[in-house]
Simulated scan of single mutants.
Amino acid sequence: MLDKKEDMIKDLIYLTGRTITGTALETGIDPTNLSRFLKGHSTVSEQKMEKVLDLLGIEPTSGTLSPHRVHIWSIKTGDLFPLSRILSSTGQDFEMVYLTPQKYLRLKSFLEFMLSPLLIRSFSSKIVFRRRPPLLLPETKYQKEDVVLVQMGLAKWRRIPKAYMYPTIKVADVIYERFYSSKELSVQEFDQIWGLPGTMPGESKWTWERLNSVLEGKGMTPGEVARTLDLTNDDETKGN
């Protein structure tokens, strides 16, 4: 947990792309009361606070990230400290890896990676982190995961072959687009994509049949599924 519940809520409102007013209206709280609470000048009932925490993906009883959902967060600046504060508050060890699309044959630019989804995972928490900064934001304004997360001991890079400058899971465009733009992802989708390059201790082995089943469940035709699997499998074969 963060030192203050108010700090955790403010960071999560920011990371989830909400506003104080919007969060208040979604949970039936007067916006002025929630604003004053976050400044330490007011109180909010325990029942309403539980609604706020649930909306933001926090288990009200334990104060930790919910293991029953994929937490989709984004920032519009280069500042990683809101992310680092939340990861630090959990007391968990995290691994991370970038997700890149099939269409990018060679990723060399630091900024190209910064715009790709970063998958972050602990034993119980699953996060898709996206940077959505202005195009003109100077590269010097971007904080790097190595400095803010790795050196602080909050996360480490997943141990898979580095096809590029960072460990990377490369997937077909349709899968990448879902992780890049979707507002909601299932825990099963996250686990299956995380398992593509290998498996973590205790995980069941990944099979293409599992991905086939998931994609068909998302409404893809058998032909679309076949093309997706062929593209992804072909690229991994070339990389070996």
Rank of each mutant, 00 (worst) to 15 (best):
E145W: 00
P60T: 06
I86T: 06
L83Y: 07
D7Q: 15
V214P: 00
T77Q: 10
Y164A: 03
K218C: 12
L53V: 05
D191Y: 03
L215W: 04
P133F: 10
I13G: 09
V174K: 14
M49G: 01
G195D: 11
N240E: 08
D7I: 10
G217F: 06
M1H: 13
L111R: 15
Q102F: 14
V171W: 05
K103Y: 13
L53C: 05
L111Q: 14
A155I: 04
T16R: 05
E184A: 13
A163M: 07
G198C: 03
T77N: 06
L56I: 09
I160M: 07
W194V: 00
G57F: 03
D54E: 14
G40E: 04
G239Y: 11
E26W: 02
K205T: 13
D93G: 00
M152H: 15
V148A: 13
V128D: 13
L135C: 01
G195A: 15
T64W: 11
P31Y: 04
K5D: 05
K162C: 11
W208M: 03
S84K: 11
R130V: 04
E189W: 12
M1V: 11
L119E: 08
L111K: 14
S213D: 12
E59Y: 00
D146G: 07
V44M: 10
G57L: 03
E6G: 05
